[in-house]
Design a protein around this nucleic acid. Sequence first.
DNA 1: AGGCTTGCTTGACTATTGTCAAGCGCGACA
DNA 2: TGTCGCGCTTGACAATAGTCAAGCAAGCCT
Lengths: 232, 232
Amino acid sequence: MRHQDLEEMRAIPFFQNVDPGQVEAMLRGAFLQRFPAHVELIHTGEPADFLHIIVEGTVELFSGHRDRETTLGLSGPGETFILAAVLFDRPYLQSARALVASRILMVPADAVRSAFTADAGFARSVAANLAEAYRGVVKELKNQKLRSGLERLANWLLTHDAANGSRGQFDLPFDKKVLAARLGMAPEVLSRSFAALGAYHVVVQGPSVLLKDVDALRKLAQPCATIDGTTL
Amino acid sequence: MRHQDLEEMRAIPFFQNVDPGQVEAMLRGAFLQRFPAHVELIHTGEPADFLHIIVEGTVELFSGHRDRETTLGLSGPGETFILAAVLFDRPYLQSARALVASRILMVPADAVRSAFTADAGFARSVAANLAEAYRGVVKELKNQKLRSGLERLANWLLTHDAANGSRGQFDLPFDKKVLAARLGMAPEVLSRSFAALGAYHVVVQGPSVLLKDVDALRKLAQPCATIDGTTL
DNA sequence: AGGCTTGCTTGACTATTGTCAAGCGCGACA
DNA sequence: TGTCGCGCTTGACAATAGTCAAGCAAGCCT
């Protein structure tokens, strides 16, 4: 790894409040890998050999069973994945693929485990990360079980708009079929859901989305702090 | 708390490998509460004031939204709940109710947080607990999204049978409507699903379940290590 | 025993979501 | 400038699950 890259890696939030010696030890055996889009990074069921930290790009977490496949989440820069598996040397529960060309920091599992054993600061950092991840999945499970597809879409639109300056107008950050997977529905259903949101003055033209009546949409979506996180 | 109870509390797995001084500090402000069946212990959205550890009994974790309600999981002795919320002083994402009369150890949130800050052993114990909890929810999410109701029931039966000596015969540990909630289906659907499993030689008489052809059931269920945990 | 509640089942219907197939529109590229 | 492929949409249909209502059976309490 280049010196400049090392600097960047040390600044990752996950490594703050961790003994610098332990951080160096983890970075020493680590790879900063570039992956092209659509490449599979890890596969469900395999043993956990590296902790992955996204430096740049977007990663889709998914899993399949029989002939079905489902997207469990999307992660971006600064986020780690499969930390829980790495820590206790368990098989991955999820697969991951790069959605766009991405840079991933891969830290060998045993380096993570020894830092976890040796340094209290790192143990706390790990716990914080796992707590956030846990709450994220619980929210996703609630989103999935307590809402219809249309409601999930409406809430996603509101959340995404809020994260982009609440201008009531934005471009979809990825293909609609990725959004469909993210929301847990077939692409055809997403199409129909967008059409149904016409009644709430949502105008979709290709990747561009216009929310012309946020209040009406909010009334349909009924966003909720214990599912969507931030108060909308 | 009585001396004998204190002994019992110190033996909780969650407190192993933790500085005894910190354990005492946590137990000092803790309550060992008895709750009758059906009582709500915590409520979604409220601030996290106590870490709950189940000493005896069964607790249902659930949450509602609008007029819907869903069960997110069932927990038994030795398990903690809402640890993630307590640790970082966030509102509960789930509600909890006692399914049967239960004894719960309630540790004040600030005592948990100071032990977490002060003791590396406890921080690691917390991380381990959160990692398990995280993996549990991920499995639940996959179970929910990748399987039909009938498949979830078939897998539950196999898992439960395996946990009870694989005798192909057991009594349901709770009411069928609780099982229905656990599996994420309406009670009526559970009834029909049991009826449908007749074709796989599953015989249900009130609370008693007889699996007369485990192989056929397994072929339907297709249990999987990355959803069901143990290899069946 | 009579009457009540509660848990469960069953039937009929509806809602939601997935699947298959066809077709449209736009950009890539020869 | 065609035409090929891909992403998306639409229609028709099927599968899955929820809802409402009626009814049954076991336990409980006078």
